[in-house]
Nucleic acid binder design. Sequence first.
DNA 1: CACGTGACTGTGAGCGCTCACAGTGCCAGA
DNA 2: TCTGGCACTGTGAGCGCTCACAGTCACGTG
Lengths: 351, 351
Amino acid sequence: MSDGASVHPKSRGAARRAQRRGPTMEDVAEVAGVSRGTVSRVLNGAFHVSPESQAAVRAAMRETGYVVNQSARSLVTRRSGAVAFVLSEPQDRLFEDPVFNVLLRACTQILAEDDSSLVLMLASTPQERTRVMRFVQGGHVDGVLLVSTHTGDPLATELDAAGLPVVVCGRPPDAGLRMPYVAADDRGGARLITQYLLDQGRHRIATVAGPDDTAGGVERLAGYRDVLGARVPDRGVVRATDFSIAAGHAAMAALLAGCPDLDAVFVASDLLAVGALEALHAAGRRVPDDVLVGGFDDSAIAPATRPPLTTVRQPLAQVAAEMVEVLRQLIDGRPASSRVLPTTLVRRGSA
Amino acid sequence: MSDGASVHPKSRGAARRAQRRGPTMEDVAEVAGVSRGTVSRVLNGAFHVSPESQAAVRAAMRETGYVVNQSARSLVTRRSGAVAFVLSEPQDRLFEDPVFNVLLRACTQILAEDDSSLVLMLASTPQERTRVMRFVQGGHVDGVLLVSTHTGDPLATELDAAGLPVVVCGRPPDAGLRMPYVAADDRGGARLITQYLLDQGRHRIATVAGPDDTAGGVERLAGYRDVLGARVPDRGVVRATDFSIAAGHAAMAALLAGCPDLDAVFVASDLLAVGALEALHAAGRRVPDDVLVGGFDDSAIAPATRPPLTTVRQPLAQVAAEMVEVLRQLIDGRPASSRVLPTTLVRRGSA
DNA sequence: CACGTGACTGTGAGCGCTCACAGTGCCAGA
DNA sequence: TCTGGCACTGTGAGCGCTCACAGTCACGTG
């Protein structure tokens, strides 16, 4: 008995190891009475494994409580099974925007369905940007979902130059980028709601546009102009400094000052519209009686404003799903192209 | 000279490899004229490396564009350098709540400062919960930041039972859990604002409380009761079904029906307060003239309501920082204890 | 002058996995 | 009966890193 330890040094070591730090494939193989390779095969859904072996392996996995070691797997496959969700925004205002949350949530969920995970990263400062680049190039993630709203975002350029799998949310403002994007049809949606305001018999339709270095700012204004053409009222366009409530308030006040006889306004986002409604209220204008208000996004706040906001719905869950799908294609080396998804009008009390 | 190529077969191979899939430590070592071990030492900030070697290695890293392979490192260190941010919520309403966003953003940023990353996970369904457990136990992350608001959350129990490093946000409703938490002083904050309403000369102070399976629901109501005691008006307490705008509206309407002569109301969250303000407006009550309204959170929406919301400020950035710090301690095997951070009153127009 | 000492460096043995390849056994067809 | 093919299985060689250990070298010190 005294040499029992030295007789089975290896198996005892394996047993100790198994309990200390979780079972390995080797342990599972031993329990199932097969080899490492067979375990690997059932794990990876490969063919050429007999039903009996398969059952034995599965039972052994259950019995031992086996979980794959992703580090070991990644080391050889060079796939991390993770994707970075990068918010590239000078100020991180976007975090307050319900649109962003919905997108983040949807992406997380969709990735999870495929057993991938989402790593959230911020890239507001140059240091953060460097970190993102190192992270992605270091193979921590297989690809990037980039939420970047600003023209000339250096991160987009760097990622693009490095040839990494990247999908952008929203039409990228820089035409030079090769990477595909997934966007809602901003321009079409803006046309939709502007036409709707027109159809309500309003003639002096102004707009609070978004910042001109964002896709939402540019495209939605373009859609508005598509419909109104020369009928855009004098001083009827004011740009908000960002997509916040406060900016909406300020822009609406400016609009009222420059174009006091407006009878409808298309506001480029719901959050801006919340501010605009306040400014209208403060100025004693009744909505919708005196002024119709149309928003954009159909975010969670839209049905909760006073009055409830008529707005344009972005299919965000679908945007998320398509972004993930396109990214998958890129990661797998398949060709991928950009996609634009239709927007729809949602009528509520404000217009 | 003719055998130059064959003299350095290894170095040529290394060079080829380096360009194919990124340089390894071996490549860096070769360029620096040192060994793998020395490179590893400078990488890990170890001592016993001569300044010359150190400089050579750093130069070689720069020259080759070396980035560590985290998979390989994790495989041996059993540390992933990542942390899971898990949102464990039956319905994922919380995603709409600005409070949650601020917390998520702050955690991401703080972790990034230490070169760790944040993996976002949802755990609404049993399947998702299983996935989280496998993920954490599989060593994908070193610990968990758990944002769970509901009593009897099975994930909290499972994580706790598994003895994994976990920090909960908010006082965990279940007393049986061993894991530490970081919370804002909900009860103290509720006392603060209730006392403030009292000090304004109001005597019929009602409350819209949060769900009773959440810390915010329980603690804030307790603070309210601490101050009012027997002075809580008859039918002056209504529970919201969740922390949403719609629930706030419904609860406030119910409150007005049961307790029509109320002259102030403490609403357990800003989002609820938005709904409550609407309900009051719909009922023709003026705020703050007829009814004072106090919220809780001081989220981004508070200054943007009509009138701006007097509320209780939660130090969310600090909560995030402390959560990360406590989790670090846990991961490093150091003892860690729960922390409660002070809340403060923010006066605006509604009270 | 031998020898311990301490700073520094190189080396081998893995971590747990996948992948390519080399078996093994079984059956149909020659 | 032999052979080729097929379904299935085991095995070795790494992936790139860290860690423990075993050097090496230049110093003092006895």
